[in-house]
């Protein structure tokens, strides 16, 4: 499948910027009540960052992550990713945008239960229409790299939580995306497994220069992040660089 992302209406990013959220608000309607998940947030990220979006539950971390990943649209303001304002994308265009630019790692329920580890890992590549031989080459390198070369035929329910997350990371990276968005990826893992997964992602970030954005309140992630953007009640309250 050819993936096409419209460039019409594209916004030229400021030099060096990969992601720029400007004056972004997101309001949800819950019954009669309006919930302001993000309130006039402005934040920018350059390519190759390893950043944690930190904050308590309901602070707007996941909402911001969803906007950057073209899963959601701002009620107000703009989110420009790789020169594309995500608010301009229709549903199919947003799907194509995600396929081309974004890799996702979620807290849980990351893998398709009916596919094997290998099939899950190569799934996004098959969505992109990459030929089988090329898919195998790319995926096997990564699966070996994360130590799952011997568990290719295992179904998700035959893998541990950590192994499942590693497969998800391979799937997210196999397409060589511009950005990997990880929504609390260590929340369901024990400390040791979580640390190993984060170290792995950090190594891959160094090797490939991929931009990683985490939504988290896990100290493990924040220890490794080069930048921590703290949110509270839908607003950025701190932006710290740690390395």
């Amino acid at each position: 499948m050819e993936v096409e992302v419209p460039r019409e209406g594209g916004v030229a990013p400021r030099e060096g910027l990969l992601i720029e959220a400007k004056d972004v608000s997101r309001v949800y309607q819950q019954g009669q009540t309006q919930v302001r998940a993000l309130d006039r947030v402005s934040v920018a990220f350059t390519a190759g960052e390893f950043t944690a979006l930190a904050g308590p539950s309901g602070s707007g971390k996941t909402t911001l992550l969803n906007m950057i990943g073209a899963l959601d649209k701002p009620t107000q303001g703009s989110v420009v990713v790789s020169g594309q304002d995500v608010a301009d994308l229709g549903r199919s265009q947003a799907a194509d945008f995600r396929l081309r630019h974004v890799g996702f790692v979620f807290q849980a329920y990351n893998l398709l239960p009916v596919l094997t580890a290998y099939e899950n890992a190569e799934f996004t590549l098959s969505l992109q229409g990459v030929p089988q031989a090329e898919r195998r080459r790319r995926v096997m390198v990564l699966l070996d790299r994360v130590g799952l070369g011997g568990k290719l035929d295992r179904r998700p329910d035959e893998l541990s939580g950590g192994e499942q997350q590693r497969v998800a990371v391979v799937r997210a990276l196999a397409t060589a995306p511009t950005i990997v968005l990880a929504d609390e990826p260590t929340a369901n893992l024990d400390r040791k497994t979580g640390a190993a997964l984060l170290d792995l992602m950090l190594e891959l970030q160094r090797e490939r220069g991929t931009t990683f954005l985490f939504s988290t309140h896990d100290p493990l992630v924040m220890e490794r992040a080069r930048r921590i953007v703290r949110l509270d009640s839908g607003a950025v309250v701190a932006d710290e660089r740690t390395g």
């Binding site: 199919s92 799907a95 995600r98 396929l99 979620f106 329920y109 990351n110 799937r171």
Partner: peptide, 15 residues
């Protein structure tokens, strides 16, 4: 539903 959400997040078009 969750699985369809995951597929959509990975870039599967609604069609």
């Amino acid at each position: 539903v969750r699985e369809f959400g995951l597929l959509g997040a990975m870039g599967l078009r609604p069609s």
